[in-house]
Amino acid sequence: MTMWVFGYGSLLWNPGFDVARREVAVLADYHRSFCMRSIHHRGTEAEPGLVLALDAAPGARCAGLALAVAEGQEDRTLDYLRERELISSAYLEKMLPVRFQDGGTAEAVTYVIDPDHVQYCGGLALEEQAQIIARAVGGRGPNTEYLFNTASHLAEIGLSDPDLDWLARRVRALAV
């Protein structure tokens, strides 16, 4: 049975594991949001950045990629993802149903935000998000790189996100 992982942020452009197949997919009842303060990868404890998370919202839909893990790599991939995504316990690992463009469905390993975690910061205004992203830098590099890569990869696969597109334009203007 194929193991699927739902990618909506950096997994789109940096999965870090062997991907056998990519399918555009939609996850119901969550939306992509810069609602997690990043104190490791794209910021520090002193100056947190922001990273995307899936924030629960009944009726919402998040378009992304379902990534099929290469056969025989399931355990290694899950270990890798847990080390990467669960570094501060702000994400919760869930098996959630995704719907492919062709109408098929699958259960996918999905990382969603824990709204009770100290790093959760849902509801920030887009301008505040832009100001934070423009200046934060963490262990994996500038927060701007994370935003720009995610926005451009979404656009490449025909899944532009209006909020991310606005943020990318605004953060570029702030950098001038």
Score class of each variant (00 low, 15 high):
G7R: 00
R84W: 04
E128Y: 00
S160T: 12
W13H: 11
L164M: 12
F148C: 01
L81T: 11
A66N: 05
A68L: 10
S152N: 11
V176M: 09
A151L: 01
S38F: 01
T77Q: 06
E23W: 06
T150Y: 01
I39T: 13
A90W: 02
D116S: 14
A28N: 08
G43S: 05
A66V: 05
R37Y: 04
R21K: 13
A57Q: 15
R21N: 07
N149L: 13
H31Q: 14
V112W: 02
R135Y: 05
H31R: 15
T2Y: 03
G9V: 04
D165R: 05
A28P: 03
L11T: 11
H40N: 13
L52T: 07
P115C: 03
A25V: 02
A20I: 05
V5K: 00
L78E: 15
V98I: 14
V98F: 03
E145L: 08
V24D: 01
I132L: 03
T77D: 09
V69A: 12
A90I: 07
R135M: 08
G138W: 05
A60G: 04
L126N: 10
F100A: 10
G43K: 00
A173E: 15
G7L: 06
A53H: 06
C121M: 06
P142G: 13
E83V: 07
F148N: 02
C62G: 10
L86G: 12
V109A: 14
G64M: 02
M3K: 09
R32L: 05
I157E: 08
A70G: 07
A53M: 08
H153I: 02
R140P: 00
G9L: 01
R84Y: 06
V26D: 09
D114Y: 11
Y111F: 15
A168I: 01
V109Q: 11
D18W: 10
L96Y: 08
R99S: 12
L78I: 14
A25T: 05
L27C: 08
P142E: 13
D163Q: 15
I157Y: 09
V19F: 08
E145M: 09
A66K: 02
M95K: 12
G122K: 02
G158F: 03
M36Q: 15
G59L: 11
A136E: 03
V26P: 04
A70T: 07
P162K: 04
R22C: 12
L147E: 00
M95Q: 12
